[in-house]
């Protein structure tokens, strides 16, 4: 009796892209892109089995709780969702994670972090946005700071970063500020991405394309 299993791993998800092309556009090898597909399949079928990562699935992976609300996780999801259609497709997932690769260009990491902090997507990090992000962090943590203290910290940060003194941080000011404070982009590097093929060895049996190096 013939049986076609629709959940076969040979059936690619919507938005699937050729690993060879994704590898050519990112720091990943073809093998690593295939390994990331294993991870993508797991994440994208954790709640809704449609092969697309929904925000709840992203939050579930990050916090083990699909209902956890977090301003920054929301922002990262929105940046991964390049097409702005409410889901992360495989190509978007790989290209975005590529920025977090230890070998990714520093400029890309700096630019990604800027967009993360530019909450209202105006092309600038504004004082109110910065304060909003500090308040959001305090809300989710046990840190307690007085309003005066928060104001002083935001003022000091702006005084240091907003060198043009126009009340907002532009991309050039951000680059200069990061060069003085490299720790600001330490979250932009995920060491896990160097060992991705070790974490997901199951792809090896099915790999279709050899790495060029």
């Amino acid at each position: 009796m013939g049986c076609f299993c629709s959940t076969s791993k040979n059936v690619k998800t919507p938005g699937y892209e050729d690993p060879t092309i994704l590898a050519s556009e990112t720091p990943f090898t073809v093998s690593e892109v295939e390994a990331l597909y294993e991870l993508f399949l797991k994440l994208s079928n954790s709640i809704i089995e449609d092969g697309l990562i929904h925000k709840e699935e992203f939050q579930l992976a990050l916090f083990r709780n699909e209902n956890e609300k977090n301003l920054f996780a929301d922002r990262i999801f929105d940046l991964f969702d390049v097409k702005r259609n409410g889901v992360i497709e495989f190509g978007e997932f790989v290209r975005s994670l590529g920025v977090f690769h230890p070998n990714a260009a520093l400029e890309d990491k700096i630019a990604f972090a800027f967009r993360l902090y530019d909450l209202r997507q105006t092309g600038y990090i504004e004082r109110e946005e910065l304060k909003e992000m500090v308040l959001a962090l305090l809300h989710e943590s046990d840190l307690v700071l007085s309003d005066d203290m928060i104001e002083a910290i935001v003022d000091k940060t702006f005084k240091d970063a907003d060198t043009k003194d126009d009340g907002r941080i532009d991309q050039d000011e951000w680059k200069a500020f990061v060069s003085q404070h490299p720790s600001l982009i330490k979250n932009m590097t995920l060491p896990y991405l160097k060992d991705i093929t070790l974490a997901f060895p199951s792809f090896i049996a099915r790999t279709e394309v050899e790495d060029s190096e």
Binding site: L39, F72, F100, E140, T157, N187
Partner: peptide
């Protein structure tokens, strides 16, 4: 406490939402 040496972006980076390592756990 020397809070005037604290950088707002460094404080923000403590957020759990910035830590993507959860994506790679339980694999």
């Amino acid at each position: 406490k020397p809070c005037n040496n604290l950088n707002a972006f460094d404080i923000i980076s403590f957020s759990s939402g910035f830590d993507l390592s959860g994506l790679f756990e339980d694999t």
